[in-house]
Amino acid sequence: MKILAFDTSNKPLSVAVVVDGKVLAHIESTEKKTHSVSLLPDIQDGLQEAGLTVNDIDLIAVAKGPGSYTGVRIAVTVAKTLADTLNKKLVGVSSLKLLAANGDKKHLLVPLMDARNDNAFAGVYVTNRDGRLLTVIADHHTSMANLFETLKQYEPNELEFINATPRLQELIQKQFPEATIIMSENSLPAAGKLAKIAETTKPVKDIDNFIPTYLRLTQAEHDWYAKGNKEDKNVSYVEEI
């Protein structure tokens, strides 16, 4: 199977072309360019490096969030456009699950995305005997305090926190000094791993209605609802915009 995989939900942009489990091209960009400018050229470069065209691709895999609102929208929009126009299969993978793929299979994996003000996007995963990541606690937006309370049921030395910023590291070490922590710079999302996860993930049935996973309202949506706009009485925020 020929897979085109890409992720723009985090600061780095990652693109990979994988054929039958072998990574033929991997492009990662941490330059200070917007993903909207870099993604399509990086996809083109990756396909060229792999000696393929986009028409050769069987499946498109995209990290669907949570993460940067703009970044997630860019990747999902490009993925949907390619899948729809080229009649290709589309798979959306949790951005947190992708981060969990950087962890040690022996640990209880807690991927994080710093959501500021001591909040985070978080999930909890384990790796089964087949090497697949299974969800223990679904992805959610939470305060670190609430997350720690939930994780008290586990042995601290079994926990591995992935993609921690310095602030999150500080909080984790105070609560779980025996836990393993992988910092953000050492746990960059890799599109090659995204392709591997996508191989065992069911494709999207309805491409038109496939949307990013945000897990919380954008500031614009929050302000819109605060003004008295409600989906059950008026048009939805998306329809309004």
Score class of each variant (00 low, 15 high):
T8I: 04
T8F: 00
K11R: 06
K11S: 10
V15Q: 08
V15P: 15
A16Y: 05
V18Y: 05
V19E: 13
H26I: 13
S29L: 10
E31R: 15
S36E: 01
S36N: 07
L40K: 10
T53D: 09
I57Q: 00
I60E: 10
V62K: 06
Y69D: 01
A75F: 07
A79Y: 03
D84F: 15
L86H: 08
K88C: 14
G92W: 09
L96E: 06
K97W: 04
L98N: 04
L98H: 12
A100C: 02
A101E: 05
L108M: 08
D114Y: 02
N117V: 10
A120W: 00
R129D: 15
R129Q: 13
R132W: 02
E149G: 12
T150K: 14
T165G: 11
R167C: 13
M183D: 12
S184V: 08
S187A: 13
L188V: 10
K193A: 14
A195Q: 07
A195N: 04
A195Y: 07
A198R: 08
N209P: 03
I211D: 08
I211S: 12
I211E: 12
P212M: 04
Y214D: 05
R216S: 03
A226Y: 05
N229S: 10
S236H: 03
V238Q: 14
E239K: 13
